[in-house]
Structures are given as structure tokens and as C-alpha cells.
């Protein structure tokens, strides 16, 4: 549908302007310009422009295979873009490795939960804290006092985070794989938060949850922004979650941005309805 795609770009530009009026920009924490990712002949993302304002919750939606996770992976350095620019806090992160981007302050979770399943819940969060710890291997061998202090402080911080995400204390020393599904999702968020991110990327945090759990997770995402003052980028299929929690929504279809704007604008956007909601309604 080439004609539809061109319309989409115009539509997006228009809603961009609209959004700026509604929500005065507080400076963007992440700026993406004409990002393109090709896998051989397949174009997974084409010329995507995308901003995440400070302290906002932005959602990325689109039908399956629209290139959302590919987009995510480029923001976190797990994939390198073919063309385009990504800036985080005014610094270009194209070409940086995943661990460097974590150090700058971007944390993420995964669509299909990827915990260190045989490590304890506590150890998972402590690994998440890795990039904020300083002790070196030779210091660990020498058992310097500051190594123990740091270890203790990390454990303390991990405990706070487990409390924050609402994981019961009794699960602390349990293997991650033995946790109930919903708690695994929470643990993954705690691990991502352990690196003190300024921007948190959540890849379908409510996938596979029942309505009750989904409701609590939605509430929790809002609470995260309030309490920690971080920005959140969300990939989500559940329209209720997206509409309920997002400041702005961007829609991808066939790798291109077809719309962007406030939740109510997206809800009524005919193109989005055709590309995404319409399909879902038929399904």
C-alpha cells in the first residue's frame, strides 16, 4: 500500500505539530532521526523519526512484524542501524555497545522474559547493578574493604528495588525460573531499574498476563514515572494499557511510522484503524 504510506508520513508530521501544542516540549531525552534498518533486502525500519520527551511515557504500537522490537534493539545497541542517528541526552549512541548504552542510562526488558533463570532473584538484580559498581577483579582477590562495602550497598539497593516492584521477600533467594510468571516480569523490571536508568524501555510488559495482572502492571508503570522521574518507552499490544498510560503514541506499520500523537488522536486516526485496530477487530 504505497499510497497509504505517503499519507502516513504527512499524517505524522501533522500530529507532531499538534502534540507540540498540547504538551510543551521539555527537551527530548532520546532523539531518533531517519533511522533505517535493513536485513538484506528486507527493510525492518524505514526513515523513522522519533522523540522521547523527558519524564514522559511514550508507546510504540503496530501490528506483528511492524519492526517494533527491531527498533528497540537499535536503541539499546543490540543491533546497529543501517542509516540514521540516535541521540541519548544529546550524545550519539550509534556504534556504542549495549553495555555502554546501559552506562549512559538506558535500561530495558524483553518481550519473552529473559531472566538469568538459574540465578536467584537477588543475584539477577545485583547483576543489573553491575554497570554502577566499580570494584575490579584484582580488588576482589585482595578483599579490599571497599569491595565488601560496595557489595553490601548493592545488596541493600537490590532489596529496595525488589520491594519497589513488589516482589515478596521470600522469593529473594529463589531461582528466577521458579517465580510465578507475573513476578518474573516484575523481577525483570527490577533488574533493569538497578542500573539507575533515565530511560526505561519495556517490551510488552503485560504479554501473557490476565486482566487483573495487566491492570496492576499499567498502574505500576505510571507509578514508576511518578516516583523515579524516569522516561518510559513502551511496546504494547494491549490497547487498554497503551491508551491508559501513554502521553504519546507512535504507530509503526511495515517498518514505517504511519502516525504519531496523543492517545485520542491515535484512537480516531483512520490509518491506524486500518493498519492496526481494524485488523485486530477482524481477528
Amino acid at each position: 500500500m504505497p499510497a497509504g504510506l505517503t499519507d502516513g508520513v504527512e499524517q505524522a508530521t501533522m500530529t507532531d505539530a499538534a502534540a507540540d501544542e498540547v504538551e510543551p516540549t521539555r527537551g527530548a531525552i532520546m532523539v531518533v532521526r531517519s533511522l533505517t534498518k535493513r536485513f538484506g533486502g528486507l527493510v525492518a525500519n524505514r526513515n523513522v523519526d522519533f522523540d522521547i520527551p523527558q519524564r514522559s511515557i511514550v508507546s510504540l504500537i503496530g501490528p506483528n512484524g511492524a519492526g517494533k522490537t527491531t527498533f528497540f534493539n537499535q536503541l539499546t545497541g543490540m543491533l546497529q542501524p543501517t542509516e540514521g542517528e540516535i541521540e541519548f541526552n544529546g550524545v550519539s549512541i550509534v556504534g556504542l555497545g549495549p553495555h555502554q548504552i546501559v552506562e549512559l542510562g538506558v535500561g530495558r526488558t524483553f518481550q519473552n522474559i529473559r531472566l538469568f533463570s538459574d540465578m536467584t532473584a537477588m543475584a539477577n538484580v545485583m547483576v543489573g547493578r553491575h554497570s554502577r559498581m566499580k570494584s575490579q577483579w584484582y580488588e576482589a582477590i585482595l578483599h579490599l574493604p571497599r569491595v565488601r562495602e560496595e557489595e553490601e550497598a548493592t545488596r541493600q539497593r537490590a532489596r529496595e528495588l525488589l520491594d519497589l516492584v513488589g516482589l515478596a521477600r521470600r522469593y529473594e533467594d529463589e531461582s528466577a525460573k521458579n517465580l510465578p510468571y507475573g513476578d518474573q516480569r516484575r523481577l525483570e523490571i527490577a533488574r533493569a531499574l538497578a542500573s539507575d536508568p533515565k530511560l526505561l524501555l519495556l517490551d510488552e510488559p503485560t504479554a501473557g498476563m490476565n486482566p487483573g495482572e495487566t491492570g496492576r502492571m499499567t498502574e505500576f508503570i505510571g507509578q514508576l514515572r511518578r516516583d523515579l522521574g524516569i522516561s518510559i518507552l513502551l511496546i504494547e499490544h494491549d490497547m487498554k494499557v497503551v491508551m491508559g498510560v501513554s502521553d504519546r503514541i507512535t504507530v509503526l506499520d511495515y517498518g514505517e511510522k504511519i502516525a504519531e500523537g496523543l492517545p485520542e488522536e491515535i484512537r480516531t486516526n483512520p490509518q491506524v484503524i486500518e493498519a492496526y485496530l481494524g485488523k485486530q477487530a477482524h481477528a
Binding site: T76, M78, G97, P98, H99, V102, E103, R108, F110, R114, L115, F116, S117, D118, M119, A123, M126, V127, G128, H130, S131, R132, M133, S135, W137, A140, I141, H143, V147, E150, E151, T154, R191, A192, S195
Partner: peptide, 30 residues
Amino acid sequence: ISLANSRVGRAWNAMREDEDVAAATGINIT
């Protein structure tokens, strides 16, 4: 033993379980 019980040992452990996720968690795999 000292290494296994430190930040380093934890990082190795994470790397052994899932290299990609370890990197995305902030561990310098190289």
C-alpha cells in the same frame, strides 16, 4: 573463590546464562 563471590563472578555467571541479556544488562562481554 574470591572471584566467584564478587561482582566479577556474578557477571561471568550472567554471561554464561545468556550472553545477549548480560550485555543488555550492562556487562562488557569482551
